[in-house]
Design a protein around this nucleic acid. Sequence first.
DNA 1: TTTACTGCAAAATTTTTGCATTAAC
DNA 2: GTTAATGCAAAAATTTTGCAGTAAA
Lengths: 153, 153
Amino acid sequence: MKITFKKGGGVKHTKTNKFRQFIAQKGLKSTRQRDIILDCFLSSSRHISIEELYLKLRTKNPNIGYATVYRTLKLFAESGIAREIQFGDGQTRYEHANEGEHHDHLVCTRCGTIIEFENETIEQLQQDVAAAHGFQIENHKLELYGVCAKCKA
Amino acid sequence: MKITFKKGGGVKHTKTNKFRQFIAQKGLKSTRQRDIILDCFLSSSRHISIEELYLKLRTKNPNIGYATVYRTLKLFAESGIAREIQFGDGQTRYEHANEGEHHDHLVCTRCGTIIEFENETIEQLQQDVAAAHGFQIENHKLELYGVCAKCKA
DNA sequence: TTTACTGCAAAATTTTTGCATTAAC
DNA sequence: GTTAATGCAAAAATTTTGCAGTAAA
């Protein structure tokens, strides 16, 4: 019998390693706070706002400062395990990022639900548009705002 | 001989009218400041930041307040002649909006140049994606970030 | 023991709000 | 005359920074 592991656990482990490697390679230090924040981030919704994360952290670690959370999230983004996103509601969010993977978002304007999607054809057309203007794309952002199935009902 | 008017002038005139109509219909008041700000907005780059607009205004009208600019831009958006956009650089911008028209953006990460484009096929694919998730799209945002032809050279 | 990290509080940014005064209707 | 708009300054809200003390390496 072939044993398979749940995706979640594996991914978490991978990201933890990736971040540790980043830290080591940059000559930075591995600290208790960074571990706590990483753990909390990885076990959170895929699009958590800074404030949400901070509040969640504080329930178990009342002495972690806001500044540390900001600084640590920036490190996550730099290391490639997270990505900063803005949905235009004044809340900066960080989403889980995976190497070479990109996805776009459907955002429900009623309940805030966020659905991720990927569409190869759209990506290709984006390349075409860019090429037509002599642009070289580094990254892109596609968000569809509307009413989700649940809220429509 | 058939006389045609430059597009710019016509559009400006149309938007001014549209805003006046909005103001009247809402029972609001037409003021000197709103006229000045509207004029300045319409004769500016298509994606002006609030600060840029404020500074531009102040050169000729040193006593217009920041609060008035913020409040007036929100009115422009409500009336449909402008749209708020964020390119993730911490600067809120307002772009000129035309009824039933939507365009997306190519943003040069080097020089900040913004190119507008429309792509019917992408829009259609977005509808398909949304439909597949039971979503009803209200609006969307597509931004391609990269290096423009000029900066590549 | 050296260097980076943390937590706090202060500062910087961006946007909103309260309110007395002014201007439009 | 009423009612809304303005301008200012104060308040919010979000993010960054300086620094003394602390904890990794």
